[in-house]
Amino acid sequence: MTRLLRSYPVALLALPAILYLALIYGVPLAGLLARSVMVGGTFSLAGFTAFFSDTFSWTVIGNTLRTAAGVTLLCLLLGYPTALALARATGAAQALILVAIILPLSVGVVVKAFAWQIVLRRDGVISQALIFLGIWDGPQRLLFTETGLIVGAANVFVPFMILPIYSVLKLVDPRLGEAAATLGASPLYRFFRVALPLSLPGIVTGIAFVFSMATSMYVIPSLLIGDRFQTLATLTGRSFLFMRNEQLGSTTAVVLLVISVGVVVASAALSRRFGGAS
């Protein structure tokens, strides 16, 4: 620690934030961890054994990872082109795109989830468009399905994919692409061999943001898919609030935490690697 401070005195600037987090996040977290491994006052891993030997728990873990992966993929597909457009745009166009990305963040998640409930209705916009295009023969259920949840959640999280990618892309010299073009590289070749590798650190950060937020989302699944689809986050909430099962609640919370920490650590390692390569 002291050596760290001697070599990076600027690290002192992070001290207030670290103290704040240690007090209001670290201490309760330690309590939660302790509770997940304490059964009747003694150390025991019974909570975890019971959790992992229950097939329902694996369904819940599967639900959590599958939706988070779906949301992340959709955010990437929608976010990357937007980030590219934002990085290339200038003046009013750039300001407009930026406002369009930032402004929706000021609308609460609950409001957005309710709006999606209207959009996903049987007679909603999506259903009508699909019927008009002949893809669907008649109205089908979208609301309270996994597809509906992924589409709705991606809408909430997409800015967190766009902004990190944009911040990397805007630093990439546009002349690199031009240089490749003069050497006869096709647009597709230029994208996959020049632009994409250079933007990888941004992509990794965006994926880490969106994936960890999507694994832990609570309000969006409760409103868009309901009680029948449990994720680690909703199961944690229910265990504490309704089932009064603190053991189960702290166990699921720890499992969720391990997944999130895993994602963050892996992405940090990856982004260092790509950062070094570029």
Partner: peptide, 17 residues
Amino acid sequence: LTIYTQMPQAYNLLEQG
């Protein structure tokens, strides 16, 4: 369609058809 815990959300769905 769903299983509700919040009654107003359920009645909203019913009233909208």
